[in-house]
Every structure is written in C-alpha cells, then in structure tokens.
C-alpha cells in the first residue's frame, strides 16, 4: 500500500494538505519526547497555529488512547482544535474509527496534490486517478477512491478503501471498500468482471454465459448482496 506520509528520523513533522494542517507523528518515539516535539513545533510557529484545526496523522505509529488524550490536552492548551486522528495502516484506521475518529485519506500538497485546488468541500474526497489500461498482472491499491481512465483487464486487480470508477471495461477483479465499507460502489462503462467485491461481500458473474447487459453499470450492496444495475445518477443517493 502506498505510504505517502512516512516520517523519517523520528521527528514530528507538520505539513499542509488539502485537509488542512497535519501533525505527523513518527513511529517508535516515546510519549514525553513526542509531546515536547509537538510543543516546540507549535511554540516556534507563532501565529501559524492560532485558532487552527489540525489533524493528527499516526502514519505507521500504533495509535494509543492515552497518547491521543495527552496530545489533545496539549493542543487545547494552545487554543488548537483537534479535528480528527488518522493513520495509514488500515487496521489502525479501523481502530481509530471505533474510538470515534474519522480517519481521513490524506494527500500531501507537496506530493502531487493539486497545489491550487481549494480544500475539499464537505463530502468531497480525494481519489487516485489512473490514466491507463491495467493489463493482466497489474495491481492498483489505494486507501481512498480510485478512478481509472482505461480498462481493467482480466488478470488485473484494483483494491480501494473507497469507490472504484472505471471509464472503460472491467474484466478483472475489483474490490471496493476493502476496509469493510458496505457503502462503497463500483461503476464502469462495461462491467464483465472476473469477480467483484464490496466490503466483505464477494460476487462473481453467473457461470452460464447469458445475455450480458450492455452499457454503463453500477454495483453496490443491497440487502447483503452485490447488486448490479444499469447506471443512473439518481440511484447513487446514499
């Protein structure tokens, strides 16, 4: 899985993203060191952090409730609101979710994100855009949504924590909502997959080669089953 927010050298780092300021925590640094590093970042930042809303990014660090409470208290002392806590390891994200945080999918501004793009509005998400055909043997993974301009051929695979949109044909295997999101969707101009998976539900096309429906299709979970239907924007409401 891509690891866009890696923190080297055991240092706390602050970076700007489309989701605002992010404080990135290094793995394997004890809490007192972490607190003093965050404190010195904020204190040397002057007005930069005043009234700010920030995101704590655990990266590959293992989240810990007491730690988050201590960091939140430190931020509150300085007038900073903790917006949410996120992590790059899917299991950790799930853990944070159970603690009431909504892990974001962060795209760093200095890592190819559109510099001039306004911060994503409420309900908007950041997707991985792949502008080529995925041929047999190719694999794309993302902890966000994936948009592919091209085909996903048999023998290729796509894994996304969010939705998968293919402007082309799906002939291979696509898994949307890999972290278990049953609301994830898959859509394609032509849908003739080897296998579709959404959340924890798997589906494959019937073995008999019946008449295939043509045209853009949408796959999603309904009543615990993956249902495939012709694309209509009004069906998207969720």
């Amino acid at each position: 899985m891509a690891e866009p927010h890696r923190s080297e050298s055991g240092q706390v780092r602050v970076r700007g993203t489309q989701d605002g300021l992010v404080i990135q925590l290094p793995p394997e640094v004890p809490l007192p060191v972490l607190l003093s590093q965050v404190r010195s970042h904020i204190d040397s930042g002057g007005d930069f952090f005043r009234q700010a809303e920030i995101v704590l990014d655990y990266g590959t660090r293992v989240p810990n409730v007491e730690e988050i409470v201590a960091l939140r208290a430190l931020l509150a002392e300085r007038g900073i609101t903790l917006r949410t806590v996120t992590a790059s390891v899917p299991a950790h994200r799930e853990l944070l979710h159970t603690w009431g945080y909504h892990p974001l999918r962060l795209v760093s501004r200095d890592e190819g994100g559109d510099r001039d793009a306004p911060a994503a509005a409420e309900g908007e998400r950041v997707a991985l855009y792949v502008r080529r055909t995925l041929r047999s043997g190719a694999s794309v993974q993302s902890d966000g949504d994936v948009v592919i301009l091209g085909d996903v051929n048999a023998g290729a695979e796509v894994y996304a924590a969010g939705d998968v949109v293919v402007w082309g044909a799906i002939r291979g295997t696509v898994h949307a909502g890999i972290d278990g999101d049953p609301g994830a969707i898959i859509c394609a101009l032509r849908l003739m997959p080897t296998q579709l998976r959404i959340g924890r539900i798997f589906a494959r096309p019937p073995d008999e080669q019946g008449a295939r429906a043509e045209g853009p299709m949408l796959a999603r979970i309904q009543d615990g089953e993956i249902v495939v239907e012709s694309w209509r924007a009004d069906r998207l409401s969720r």
């Binding site: 041929r135 047999s136 043997g137 190719a138 051929n153 048999a154 023998g155």
Partner: peptide
Amino acid sequence: VRDADRIIGLVE
C-alpha cells in the same frame, strides 16, 4: 489473449 495482455504490459 490473457498472456498477450500481460506481455503488452511488460513491453510498455
């Protein structure tokens, strides 16, 4: 055809 597809990917 499946193998040809794989090969095309490797050539690219």
